[in-house]
Nucleic acid binder design. Structure first.
Lengths: 186, 186
DNA sequence: AACTAGCCTTGACAAAAGTCAAAATGTCAG
DNA sequence: CTGACATTTTGACTTTTGTCAAGGCTAGTT
């Protein structure tokens, strides 16, 4: 997979703009557990996952709570921190050996100034982010522990393989014991 | 309150751009219960609430579930539908007599083409939307019924006055009975 | 193979919130 | 003001999920 893959979903950008943007990208070969962003620091980069997967989580009352999982072809960053330029409360790490492309906040702003077209691209990333969050919100609001697990299995089966029971349980907002019982009765 | 109030939070737009944008705005005087967007239809407008308040909800298993409350100074639309141009699953209605300004999807797109600066403005609206949703998500994830109610009281006390118990309960993801008990023990 | 550490599962019990039903209160037209 | 209807509160009981504790499984090490 090469850099241009990143643009597959993103349309209507001229060659020049594309090349300028690509010139700002940094390629990252990350091992499992590599920290993309760290809680307490201002999020520096917007990442594109070319291969692999990542997990965003934060610590609350000494517990590790998974906020989201990201797969190949998705963008990921500590969006709240990236937007507000305030310290992130989440940490993002790879779940496996991954190939990432990242652009720094400042370079991205420079891109926007130079090529307003890219503002549209970023807008679309934001929109996707928003929709994903909204869907997760609704999905978590009306379903029982069991239904939430079944839905994750259907929508992101790769996560079930890749993440630990603890990660999945906190993402689905239940204890590992409840998850274990749900799995036992499928 | 006049149209320019809308721009209070939104900076760095020239007079020309501002005027063009304002020329596309439509003023709406809405009575209580006026439907801004309707489930099943593609969301046509982005609204700005100048005075009043609104509630977004959807129907699931014959139940009316409140997704969000919006107050004066906020933008509101069925964002998912507005973004994807697919039918909305939510309906948005005013909670009281309200003064709104709205711009249609097509006019907004035209604005973006003509004045890329406005793309930035829209991006900022989207960012606010996103952050609000994220905060709501985290807030609902770790709190008990009681804590969720206390937090709503603190953050949007106006809602407690304006909305019915049923609306508030579904928003806080609890039954009206539970909400009633929570309120009894404050 | 035996030992260990970490992770996962299972069981017994507790807590939180939901359900159903009835009583109390509020609202409003006539 | 009164009756009718809708909304809210309260009570008894059920269901779901959480907590704590014990036991089992697996991979890596000696």
């Amino acid at each position: 997979m090469t850099k241009p893959t990143l643009f597959e979903n993103i349309t209507e950008v001229s060659e020049d703009v594309r090349n300028f943007f690509i010139s700002k990208l940094e390629e990252i070969h990350a091992e499992k557990g590599y920290k993309l962003e760290t809680a307490g620091e201002v999020s520096k980069y917007l990442y594109y996952i070319s291969e692999g997967s990542a997990r965003s989580f934060y610590i609350r009352d000494n517990r590790d709570i998974t906020a989201s999982f990201s797969l190949e072809g998705e963008f990921v960053t500590a969006m709240h921190s990236f937007i507000t330029r305030s310290p992130s409360y989440e940490t993002i790490e790879t779940l496996e050996k991954s190939l990432l492309y990242r652009i720094s906040y400042t370079d991205l702003q420079e891109c926007f100034k130079k090529f307003p077209d890219l503002e549209r691209v970023y807008r679309m990333i934001l929109e996707k982010y928003y929709i994903a969050l909204e869907e997760q919100m609704i999905f978590s609001k009306f379903k029982s522990a069991r239904e939430r697990y079944l839905e994750l299995m259907e929508k992101k089966p790769k996560i079930i393989q890749r993440a630990s029971v603890g990660h999945i349980a906190s993402f689905l907002d239940m204890t590992i014991e409840t998850l274990s019982r749900v799995r036992a009765k499928i």
